[in-house]
Nucleic acid binder design. Structure first.
Length: 272
DNA sequence: ATGGCCGTTGGAAACGGA
């Protein structure tokens, strides 16, 4: 069984590449973020032709999350129980479902913009709400059910998860409160901590650090290797013990129009 | 050596992204 998480940076713009990618890589479940689609414009028919059911939560211009599955799509949950508002709106940043016996979430954690910004507070509150949801669901589904929080967390858990930690001094994504919020939702939501499935090194990745999942569009970030590991798969032991491989599909970050890449590459988790 | 982006809305230019 193959599960993947991919920040699409627009389902509409990415559709040609997505169709190719689904056919090539054959994931059983795809957790998608930043669809920038409405539920009406979400191209469910194109995915159905490829054998995928899908559930989408979005309202257009920004955000938007979805789950595609060809191993069942049940008990779809749209939004977190205690999701914080931003500017009086519950943004479409979280969708959960049960697929192939696994309880999975597709999450698009707020960016935070700047340390101390209102959006930064919102980011920390959102991560706390993810933790509350995880605690509830881990208790509900039990330790024997595979459980995973996947998506664009907009947090690099360790210094080695960014291309140069000195370039991030004082910036979001690496600050202690953000990292602590991620640690908390891993350790405080069940009897055993969730496990961060760090991807293995890949052949065309030129150092020993974990591969990145995001590279800036600006400044030729991908070509210069200026990336960050901010797309995460945090899973319970029941799911972790089934993991055969975890890798980043860097090929999906390459290329140009008319099948232009997202600024994120898919994080792929293969299970026995 | 330096600077170099993209998608969306709306129909120009501003915003968000990280």
């Amino acid at each position: 069984m193959r599960i993947a998480s991919w920040n699409l940076n627009s389902a509409k713009a990415r559709l040609p590449r997505m169709v190719d990618w689904l056919a090539d890589r054959q994931p059983d479940v795809l957790l998608a973020q930043e669809t920038k689609a409405t539920d009406e414009s979400w191209p469910a028919d194109a995915f159905a032709e490829l054998g995928y059911e899908s559930a989408h939560l979005g309202n257009g211009r920004w955000n938007g999350v979805a789950i595609l599955s060809r191993v069942g799509l049940e008990s779809v949950t749209r939004g977190l129980d205690a999701q914080p508002l931003f500017e009086d709106v519950v943004e479409p940043r979280a969708i959960g479902a049960t697929c192939g016996g696994l309880r999975l979430w597709s999450l698009y954690v707020p960016n935070g913009r700047e340390v101390g910004h209102l959006h930064y507070r919102y980011k920390l509150d959102f991560l706390a709400a993810v933790g509350a949801q995880a605690a509830t669901e881990r208790a509900r589904f039990g330790a024997h059910t595979g459980f995973g929080l996947l998506g664009d967390f907009n947090v690099a858990p360790h210094d080695d998860d960014v291309w140069d930690i000195t370039a991030f001094d004082g910036l979001t994504h690496v600050s202690a409160p953000e990292r602590q919020a991620v640690t908390a939702l891993m350790t405080d939501t069940g009897d055993e901590p969730l496990i961060d499935l760090s991807p293995r090194a890949s052949a065309d990745h030129d150092d020993l650090r974990p591969p990145y999942t995001f590279w800036e569009m600006r400044m030729l970030g991908f070509a210069k290797g200026r990336g960050m590991r901010i797309d995460l798969a945090l899973v319970n032991p029941a799911l972790a013990q089934r993991v055969a491989d975890v890798w980043v599909d860097r090929d999906a970050r390459k290329g140009a129009a008319p099948k232009a890449p997202s600024d994120h590459a898919p994080l792929v988790v293969d299970l026995d």
